[in-house]
Amino acid sequence: MREKASFNFAGKTVLVTGAAKGIGAAIAEQFGSYGANVVVADVDEQGEAAAAGWRQLGRSARFIRCDVSRGSEVAKTVAYAEQEFGGLDILVNNAGIFPRARLAETDEAFWDRVMDINLKGAYLMCQAAVPGMISRGGGSIVNIGSLHATSGAPDTLAYAISKGGIVTLTRNLASALARQRVRVNCIHPGWVASDGEMARLAAAGEGGDSLEKAISRMPMGRMQTGDDIASAAVFMTSDFADQITGQQLTVDGGISSR
């Protein structure tokens, strides 16, 4: 009989991309609260302030600037995590952008930027992190997907396709790496009340009463938070989920069940 499973991540090292703020910051913060060594990777220098704040709480956190669309920076980031903490156990591919454009408005540069960050970035991170995980006897990867992955809205064409690719990446690697005990799963967030989303809604004139009415129609009566997604990531990489791989976990308060 195996040892009792737990949410104790002491001695484990977690690399979270796009973790300077938003969902990524919530994921990094929650892993740190469970004792993990956390590496915050982001193009936004605000990541250093986030990591410094967690260190003041007695947690083990480091920041490294990383553009996930550049292979050289990705390799440097993974090497940094391994050197700082002796190895990398968990990778959360959260970095992404969510620009909107319909087919006619999606030029080649727009398409390439979305794919480079949302899909290529996850592939590069997996490619860099997996060899070390295998050498350590296993690991866990969580890719952050989207409810748009199966079809998307008319103005989320490139974004939806990039997230559909994340699903395929997840399932392909889960099958390829199972024998090496590297688990790969995907989390689809619902409508998350991040600072960026709230700013977008306000700019579009969709705040105030109209937003409250939209929220009131949601199955469980509220938008999701970064902490909701973080809790799912912690579970999917914990001992409790050690037989779960190649799966998609939707955290949307029931939106997609209607």
Rank of each mutant, 00 (worst) to 15 (best):
M1G: 15
E3N: 14
N8E: 13
A10C: 12
G11R: 11
T13F: 05
V14Y: 00
L15R: 02
V16H: 04
V16T: 02
G18F: 07
G18Q: 12
A19V: 08
G24D: 02
A25F: 05
A28M: 09
S33M: 08
G35C: 09
G35S: 08
V39K: 01
V39E: 04
V40L: 06
A41C: 03
E45W: 09
E45Q: 14
Q46G: 15
E48D: 15
E48W: 09
E48T: 14
Q56F: 08
S60N: 13
S60T: 13
A61F: 13
A61K: 00
R65K: 15
C66P: 05
V68T: 13
V68K: 03
R70W: 03
R70K: 15
E73L: 12
E73M: 14
V78N: 02
V78D: 01
A79M: 09
A81M: 05
A81N: 04
E82K: 13
Q83L: 10
G86K: 04
L88C: 07
D89V: 13
V92P: 00
N93S: 06
N93C: 11
A95I: 08
F98W: 14
F98H: 14
R102H: 03
L103R: 06
A104K: 13
E105H: 07
E108I: 13
D112G: 05
R113A: 14
I117K: 01
I117R: 01
Y123E: 02
L124E: 01
A129P: 07
A129F: 06
M133A: 08
I141E: 02
V142G: 01
V142K: 04
N143H: 09
G145M: 06
S146T: 07
P154G: 12
T156I: 06
T156P: 00
T156Y: 00
Y159V: 11
Y159L: 08
A160L: 09
I161K: 11
K163A: 06
G165M: 08
V167W: 13
L169E: 02
L169D: 06
R171G: 00
L173R: 01
A174T: 02
S175E: 06
A176I: 03
A178E: 06
A178L: 05
V182I: 11
V184C: 07
I187R: 06
H188S: 14
W191Q: 12
D195Q: 13
M198A: 12
A202V: 00
A202R: 06
A202H: 04
A202D: 11
A204P: 09
E206A: 10
G208S: 08
G208C: 10
S210W: 00
L211F: 06
E212M: 12
K213D: 09
A214T: 12
I215L: 10
S216M: 08
M218P: 05
G221P: 11
T225M: 11
T225Y: 10
G226S: 12
S231Y: 11
V234D: 00
V234E: 00
V234R: 01
M236G: 00
A241H: 04
Q243P: 00
T245D: 03
T245N: 03
G246H: 02
Q248I: 15
T250G: 12
T250A: 13
V251C: 10
G253C: 08
